[in-house]
Design a protein around this nucleic acid. Structure first.
Length: 224
DNA sequence: AGCCAGGCTACCG
DNA sequence: CGGTAGCATGGC
């Protein structure tokens, strides 16, 4: 058992299963690791992945609910919405002008897939979809084994001595994936761990890696 | 009042 | 290539 897998175990013991990605439009259901998701759920995860860029998920839920009450939590409905109405609906998530553009760009791409799973490379060509958003869609929407790296992940790894400020997204991602692969051979189990681990890091990050100085009170520092 | 949030693009040197 | 301004709302 390497240190990264050990971190996962400790976080899991402390916070329990997180059950990401929570689906809002059809009722929150925790711990649903089914595969594949229904197509509307995949779309909701992708939409949420764009909306959650640099904001809190609570704000995203408001936006998703705004769309849901308009029966507009689907690609076609959003695409045919009045653009100002769409902006108003997603306003709570911030950057609503940019995100409206991103969402409409993504919907064009999403519909062109006709239900197929996109490659990561193709996703990265969609305006508004960067590495983290692409991995978020693939990991939580399409249930693919793509570890999602965020600011908390990087801060945690820096604090524990596994990375520095210059470490790139791709380096952190492959480090996390290769570490976990050493310990977990079953592919489905590995995918679920990717899903849980990122969520656990976020939960842990909210406690100890939001305010500077980071890591104050982080119990992982004493163990790892 | 100010900082932070489940980032990305455009543009700069 | 790396570094940074701009994007915007809501919560604490």
């Amino acid at each position: 058992m390497n240190k990264i897998y050990n971190i996962y175990k400790i976080l899991y013991e402390n916070y329990g299963p997180q059950g990401w990605w929570p689906i809002t439009g059809y009722g929150y259901h925790k711990l649903d690791y089914s595969f594949p998701r229904e197509s509307n759920e995949i779309f909701e995860v992708c939409l949420g992945s764009i909306l959650t860029q640099n904001t809190t998920f609570a704000s995203v839920v408001k936006s998703l609910n705004n769309l849901h009450v308009k029966s507009a939590l689907h690609a076609d409905a959003i695409e045919s919405m009045d653009i100002d109405e769409l902006k108003e609906a997603i306003r709570p998530s911030g950057y609503f002008n940019q995100k409206t553009e991103y969402i409409l760009e993504f919907i064009k791409f999403y519909k062109s897939l006709k239900g197929a799973t996109p490659t990561r490379e193709a996703l990265l060509h969609v305006k508004g979809v960067g590495e983290e958003t692409a991995d978020s869609m693939l990991l939580y929407g399409y249930n693919k084994r793509e570890f999602k790296v965020d600011a908390y992940t990087k801060r945690l790894l820096i604090e524990l001595g596994f990375a520095d400020e210059k470490t790139k997204y791709s380096e952190i991602k492959s480090f996390m994936q290769s570490s976990l692969k050493e310990c977990v051979k079953d592919e489905k189990e590995l995918r679920i761990i990717y899903q849980e681990f990122h969520a656990l890091i976020v939960e842990h990050g909210k406690h100890f890696y939001s305010k500077k100085p980071y890591a104050k009170g982080c119990f992982l520092k004493d163990i790892i």
